[in-house]
Computed example of a mutant assay.
Amino acid sequence: MKYKIIADSGSNVTTLADTDFASVPITIMAGGKEYIDDAALDILAMTDELRKLSTKSSTACPNIDQWLTAFGKADIIVAITITGTLSGSYSAAVQARKQYLEKHPNAQILVLDSQSAGPRMQLLLEYAAKLFAANAPFNEIESKLTTYQQHTELLFSLESLTNLVNNGRISATAAKISNMLKLRIVGTDTNGKLTPVGKARGQAKAISLLLKEMQAQGFNGKKACIAHCFNETGAKLLSQKIKEAYPACEITLTTTRGVCSYYAEVGGLMVGFEKQ
């Protein structure tokens, strides 16, 4: 049996240790230009260019053929997508599953809408890889992974809201007020939607608020993944604060790829974590 894990680039993940893994790119479209979120994308150049724009921008999901290509010839497949409220990636993957099964009727495929992005998706991918390593049967993989999803969460802290305005996710007035007051927005992914939960003046206060919200949402102190968009200082400070409260916590620091950098923008922090 050949196992394979696939995710769109909203996960920030490019490789999984000892696992057959593929990343399918999402495309960011802004200023008449397309940024394909693959290994060749220059994230710094993209974020610099996007900061200069005030026109509408959007993202395009991977198409069905891209998902089919990623499936390869695997027998057991887990495909995890960015939340369906931000992208049509989940729908495309579901259609690819249908077409794949027509030609490979004995294959078993789980397509999971993460209802999230970035580091929460990474937690799901790493858990799937553990199940694969244990040679778990498909039914067990499906059951345990969907259960595990209910015990994970995502929080984020944003310094800039420009792209969310240009993408039509929030109002320009709300963003202008936040920028004027130098506020960082702290939010979560309630049912797959980006939902603000608080505001903080400055990074230090935002990080304290992040940890407070993690605890309020039932953080179990065992595992967290922090992704940052050119904000290593903030990521390390958040990691330090978590370690002070939960010394045994397993923490991974990563950088955002294209689509998460598009939404989080420079200075942004995202933290995925396990909860009770």
Rank of each mutant, 00 (worst) to 15 (best):
M1A: 15
M1Y: 13
K4M: 09
K4S: 10
I6N: 01
T15F: 05
T19Y: 03
V24T: 04
P25W: 09
G31P: 00
Y35P: 00
I43D: 05
K56V: 14
D65S: 09
L68S: 08
F71Y: 14
T85M: 04
L86I: 07
Y90T: 15
V94I: 13
Q95D: 08
A96R: 09
L101I: 04
K103E: 11
H104Y: 12
L110E: 05
A117Q: 07
Q122G: 15
Q122S: 14
L124R: 09
Y127I: 09
K130M: 11
F132T: 00
F138T: 04
E140C: 03
L155P: 00
S160C: 12
R169C: 03
T173W: 01
N179A: 15
L183N: 06
G192Q: 12
P196A: 10
K199P: 01
A204F: 08
L211R: 07
E213H: 05
Q215T: 08
Q215R: 08
F219A: 01
K222E: 06
K223W: 03
C225Q: 00
I226S: 06
A227Y: 02
L238Y: 01
S239H: 11
E244S: 08
T252K: 13
L253H: 06
L253T: 02
G258F: 08
V271E: 06
V271P: 03
G272S: 05
Q276R: 01
